[in-house]
């Protein structure tokens, strides 16, 4: 475990070298949240109106949190990196080191994303406070639980995207699968809470990783409830286990097929 913490720490040190790029990325995040702010502001007639159980402020905070989680996951970058590692043979230079490749990828990616996640949280909160003037009603313990849930959400997303990237061992290019994955999460998780969809879709979302990645932590933030928190945290931990299992199977099967060009 110590070595993975060192990989994580080294990646944080490394990412501090391009902090300006991270700050530039925040422009995209702010613009997106601003568009949704105006959209919901237009749809809601007044602040007390409820649509599918959500007030206008809750709805906007939901978007701020889900988009924050997606940005802080850096999923597209991770998938592209693994696909290139597998196709280009770079994975070979990580295989002969005394660590697990999956452990390396996860700790290194989380390290790379830490600064970005912190900046996104700050920008998101500032945005919410400027445009909505208030935080959702949540205690300090609630905030700590939401932060744990947010971390688990990013972790699950990272491991699942690692698994998608590892599909490159078999299908050469896993980016179309990633594209599909990201769009499903965007529509069914990031943009709208599951209560906005028909019953059948709600059931699908409830039993899919979208619940653990997007809906769960965002719902907790906008409408904290300890019972719900327990369910969400347990679900997330189960998903961490499942995702790790899938990644390990794909890696073990794939690495036997590795075909690295010679020199």
């Amino acid at each position: 475990m110590k070595k993975y913490l060192y990989i994580y720490k080294s990646e944080i040190m490394s990412s501090l070298q391009y902090i300006f790029n991270i700050l530039l990325n925040m422009v995209g995040y702010t613009v997106l949240v601003f568009i949704f702010f105006n959209l919901w502001d237009y749809i809601y007639e007044d602040a007390s109106q409820l649509i599918n159980g959500y007030t206008k402020n809750q709805m906007i905070w939901y978007i701020i949190v889900t988009e924050m989680l997606w940005q802080a996951s850096g999923a597209r970058k991770l998938c592209r990196k693994i696909c290139e590692d597998v196709r280009g043979g770079n994975i070979a230079y990580n295989i002969n080191k005394p660590y697990s490749y999956i452990g390396y990828v996860i700790s290194s990616h989380l390290g790379e994303m830490t600064i970005k996640a912190l900046i996104t949280i700050i920008v998101g909160i500032i945005f919410g406070m400027i445009f909505l003037n208030e935080l959702p009603q949540i205690s300090l313990i609630g905030i700590i639980i939401v932060l744990i849930s947010a971390f688990l959400s990013i972790l699950i997303n990272t491991i699942l995207v690692t698994a998608i990237g590892l599909l490159s061992f078999t299908i050469e290019d896993a980016s179309p699968i990633y594209w599909l994955y990201s769009k499903v999460i965007l529509i069914l998780g990031t943009m709208f809470p599951m209560e906005f969809f028909p019953k059948i879709i709600q059931t699908i979302v409830r039993f899919s990783p979208i619940y653990a990645i997007s809906y769960g932590p965002a719902r907790l933030f906008v409408n904290f409830d300890i019972k719900n928190a327990v369910v969400i945290l347990i679900t997330q931990m189960i998903y961490v286990g499942i995702a790790l299992g899938i990644s390990n199977i794909l890696y073990k099967k794939g690495v036997k097929k590795l075909n690295v060009n010679g020199g």
């Binding site: 110590k2 070595k3 060192y6 990989i7 080294s10 040190m13 490394s14 990412s15 070298q17 391009y18 230079y93 080191k97 005394p98 660590y99």
Partner: peptide
């Protein structure tokens, strides 16, 4: 195999850590 953004010293410390 080295980390481009880290110093030589930090890189060597990193390799020391991964080899326990």
């Amino acid at each position: 195999q080295l980390w481009m953004h880290l110093t030589v010293y930090d890189n060597l410390k990193f390799f020391g850590a991964i080899y326990d």
